[in-house]
Amino acid sequence: MVAGGLVIALPKRGLMHRRIGYVYVISMLLTNSSAFLIYHLFGRFGPFHALAIFSTITIAGGFVPALFRKKVKNWLHWHYYFMNWSVVGLYAAFWAELTTRTLPMGRFWMLVLIATAITTGLGSFFIRKHAKRLTGA
């Protein structure tokens, strides 16, 4: 979460951005991989496994274009949107987990949906707000 926040908040297109980005990508790949070791919630493949797959897709969607930027048309556009949505997803999962563990309402899925909706709404606003400035599009 720290690396995701830093890579979003700090200046782009530099060595520091790249290094923190690598830390973020590796951390997220390890986190998503570890999600597949958890089966005690549903006893089988569950919604959190599907979200780990989706998260891995967003990581790949942002990392691969940056890695092959000379071969990918509009690589910065793809990198910007996929990586930002990856971080928003991470924070949505954090807020959903935090609210379900701290609020005594007993409505797990409702809390997950509310926390996710608020986080993705705010994320969408800021992604769009800064897109033109950061991608030039």
Score class of each variant (00 low, 15 high):
residue 13 R to S: 11
residue 91 Y to F: 15
residue 67 L to H: 12
residue 73 K to H: 11
residue 123 G to N: 05
residue 37 L to G: 05
residue 74 N to M: 09
residue 76 L to G: 08
residue 35 A to H: 04
residue 44 R to M: 10
residue 81 Y to I: 15
residue 93 A to H: 02
residue 50 A to Q: 02
residue 116 T to V: 15
residue 72 V to F: 07
residue 53 I to C: 09
residue 12 K to F: 10
residue 68 F to S: 08
residue 115 A to F: 12
residue 121 G to L: 05
residue 81 Y to F: 14
residue 133 R to F: 02
residue 112 V to F: 11
residue 37 L to H: 02
residue 88 V to W: 00
residue 26 I to E: 02
residue 57 I to A: 13
residue 31 T to R: 04
residue 89 G to I: 07
residue 41 L to V: 11
residue 31 T to P: 00
residue 130 H to S: 09
residue 20 I to W: 14
residue 32 N to W: 13
residue 56 T to R: 04
residue 62 G to H: 07
residue 50 A to T: 10
residue 119 T to N: 00
residue 89 G to Y: 06
residue 82 F to G: 11
residue 40 H to E: 13
residue 122 L to A: 12
residue 43 G to W: 07
residue 85 W to D: 00
residue 31 T to F: 14
residue 61 G to M: 07
residue 123 G to S: 06
residue 73 K to P: 08
residue 98 L to F: 13
residue 90 L to D: 04
residue 81 Y to L: 13
residue 52 A to Q: 01
residue 22 Y to F: 11
residue 101 R to I: 01
residue 10 L to C: 02
residue 112 V to D: 02
residue 51 L to M: 13
residue 109 W to T: 12
residue 45 F to Q: 04
residue 94 F to L: 15
residue 88 V to Q: 00
residue 34 S to D: 05
residue 50 A to P: 06
residue 65 P to C: 13
residue 129 K to C: 02
residue 124 S to F: 07
residue 25 V to D: 05
residue 77 H to Y: 12
residue 132 K to F: 01
residue 71 K to W: 10
residue 36 F to R: 04
residue 101 R to L: 07
residue 28 M to L: 08
residue 129 K to L: 10
residue 96 A to P: 03
residue 36 F to K: 05
residue 76 L to T: 11
residue 42 F to A: 09
residue 101 R to Y: 00
residue 108 F to V: 13
residue 126 F to N: 00
residue 21 G to V: 02
residue 103 L to E: 05
residue 70 K to M: 07
residue 102 T to F: 01
residue 128 R to E: 09
residue 42 F to V: 11
residue 66 A to C: 04
residue 77 H to L: 13
residue 44 R to T: 15
residue 38 I to E: 04
residue 23 V to A: 07
residue 94 F to K: 04
residue 73 K to W: 04
residue 89 G to N: 10
residue 126 F to S: 01
residue 119 T to S: 09
residue 23 V to R: 04
residue 82 F to V: 06
residue 46 G to N: 08
residue 61 G to E: 02
